[in-house]
Structure formats: C-alpha cells, structure tokens
Design a protein around this nucleic acid. Sequence first.
DNA 1: CCGTATCCAATAAGATACTG
DNA 2: CAGTATCTTATTGGATACGG
Lengths: 225, 225
Amino acid sequence: MELEKVTIERRAEAKRRYDDACGTAHGLELIGERWALLVLRELLLGPRRFSQLRADLPGLSANVLTQRLAELEERGLARRRMLPPPASAQVYEATEWGLEAEPVIQALGRWAARSPMHDPTLPLSGVSILLSFRTMIDEKRARKLDARIGFVFGKDRYVARVRKGRIKVAQGAVEECDAIISAPPTALAAVVYGGAPIDLLGISGDRSAAEKFVTLFVLPPKVGS
Amino acid sequence: MELEKVTIERRAEAKRRYDDACGTAHGLELIGERWALLVLRELLLGPRRFSQLRADLPGLSANVLTQRLAELEERGLARRRMLPPPASAQVYEATEWGLEAEPVIQALGRWAARSPMHDPTLPLSGVSILLSFRTMIDEKRARKLDARIGFVFGKDRYVARVRKGRIKVAQGAVEECDAIISAPPTALAAVVYGGAPIDLLGISGDRSAAEKFVTLFVLPPKVGS
DNA sequence: CCGTATCCAATAAGATACTG
DNA sequence: CAGTATCTTATTGGATACGG
C-alpha cells in the first residue's frame, strides 16, 4: 500500500519533468509550478509566516501553499525556521540561492509590465510593491534623493534606503526614517504608478522626502507605443 | 447550451488568474503555463514549423502544443505565418515583444544552472544550446576570437558571429563561415560544458577557430561551492 | 490562531488514434 | 504534415475538519 503510493509519486514526478538539459527547463522544474514563483517572491524581503503568505496571496489555498512551501524547501530554495522565544512562531525564509532568483522575478515582471493586458488596479502585497521599486527605479531621478523611507502596511514594517540612485529595501523598524508612509500597498501603487493624488497615503515625518520618493519610479512603455 | 459553455470558459479563465497587480504575476499568466516558455524559447532564433517544435520538445504532445501556440498568438507573443511559395508552409514566429522575453529565459536558465539537481546529459534542442552560448559567453575569453561559426543540426543551419567579446546567433546559411560544426546538440553541449573531447564533433573549415570557440563558455558555480 | 490533512469538483496535461 | 478528437490521469482549488 505504502509502496504503491511511493511508486505512483515517482511516476508523477517523472512525468512532470521536461527531460531537457536546458537550464531554463530545469528552472521551470524548480519554480515553474503554479504559485511557486509568487510564494518565493513573498520571501525575498525576509521571513514570512504561513498566515502572512496566505494573506498576501489571496487566491492561494492552504493546501497548495503547504505543498509549494514543501517543494521549495525540498529543492533548497526556502527553509522553515522557529523564531526564538518568546515569539516561538514558525517562519519560512528564502535560502541564499532562493534569494538569487530575484533577477528572474524582476526580468519577468519588467517584461510583463509592458503588456497591454496588464491590470494595475488589482490587489497587491507589500512585498510586491516594494520589489517593484527595486525593479523600476529611475536611477537618474533617484540620485537627487538621499533618504530613508519607512513603510507601514498593517502590521508589517519595511525600510527603503535611497542613496546614489540605488535603493535597498528590508524589513525593519521605521522609527529612524526620514518619512513614514502608511497606506495599503494598492494605494501606494496607485500614487506611484497611477498618478493618484498623494493624499491617499498617510505620511509622517519629512513630507517632501516622501513626495520626492513617489516620483522615482517609471514603468516601461506598453507594447506598441 | 452554447451560452453555458461560454460561461464556463469565462469562469475557468478567471480562476486561473492570480488577481495580483504585480508584473511578475501577470507574466506568469502570460507565459507561466507548462511548456509555454520552452515553446517561446524555440522561436527565439527564428520561425519554426509545428513538426520542428514537436521534435525539439519531445515530451510535449500535439494537443498541448496546439493550445500553447494558440495562447501565445492570442497574447501577442507569437504569430503564425505562411511562407511564400514554393515553400507554402505554415510557420510560427515570435513577435517583437515575444523576442523581448529572452532576458527572462536567460535569467531563469542562468539561475537554474547553479542547481545541484541539474542534469546536463539530458537531450537538448539546437536552439537551446545556441541560446545558452548567448547566456554563458565569457566576454574576456571571447575577445580573443573574431570568427563566424556555422552549425549544422540535422536540417537546421545556424550561424554564430563572435566579435569583440559578443556573440550573435541566427538561422542562416553556413557556407561563408570560418568553420562549420556538425553534431547533435547534445554532443556539442558535452564538449562545451562537459569537457568531452572535441572529436565528438564534425568540423570543417578553420579547425582552430572551432577549437577556440568551444572554450568560450562557462557555467556558473553550483550552489554550495 | 497556526498549520496540516482530507475529500470533492473542476481543469489541465498526457497518450493515442484519427482526419483533411 | 499539421493538427483534432477522445479518453485517461494528474493537479488545482475550495471547503472542511483535524491536531497543537
């Protein structure tokens, strides 16, 4: 009975391979399943809990998330870790190699942003919008700003450091930032990419730094324009 | 009856979306289906016929190939075209935007090449190995070579131009090349990446140019080394 | 609450045979 | 050759229930 199950699993795994020596094909075997790349994306700015991942990827059901996390772990792209007491919560985090998949995620995102079918009004996770800043920053404009901007998305806190045209983003305490932006990620996206008025955002601290910050990012031109 | 079917199809399409404004998620909706990216890859060096695609992707069945091609066409990434008489054959070719997905394919391939689970002895298409040259060329070494190398993979002909550390690859006549390499793509991969002896390859023309050529490419180090 | 496991219905993928 | 049609199997997603 158990043996039979194992045999079936073997066959299933074998079937889903591409049997292709090309690195791209192997990459698809590693992170090509539905949702896998988005789960990995959510881990790129630091450890996340199961329930946070569920909240960030609303269409993903618990059983599939469990399976994707197990696969990422098995393949060496993520690991689960117990936070030390008093938190004592389990978190999932990307491994070094998992983090190195960011250029793949960026290349795909940048390419797809040109799509005429892209709908930027859909919901968006905090990690998504912050990663898009890393992808879409306009170096020339960004050189004019040297600031630390904090972001408050519900209970999550992130800090973006803009300096010399580059941006670094990480989870962290927002207290020492020049400005703090509190808003749903979708509102932030509407302001940065959709030209919505900045008063959709809660801003504290150096207001002008925040105002400059939201103008640093540009989407690539749509296909056919 | 017909209406019902349409409704069901609508619901199905809606279900497979990610409902995520992130460009990466949209990218997955465009080329995230199983095989889609590999089909597109096969179109990156020029038009291919249905049967060539089947031969290049042996694990892909005809019905799925039909479906993937229809989706690529519908999304503006590929088109079907009738070759002028006397050929009068139908071919599939990438659109401009489809060609722009090459960085995505490269990033994924480069990242996955570091995988300890990667098996480079599997079969490989001609397009795959030539694209890998674009990805893996060592600019420093390549600067020492200025040559046109022809490749004969069965009935397919390609030309690689190496110059100033860069490489360009296209379908084309091999007659005016400095050297011509005739070999199954797998053998070429074994020589270039696996250190196999070069006499696995049929070489005509400037032998030393071909010998230099096969040393220009390096794989990234495996994870954990 | 956190995470996993199980069951079920809906789709997608795969194998094979068939047609113009 | 260039696909369709059909049948089978696998995966996905949704709901729900279970253990810590």
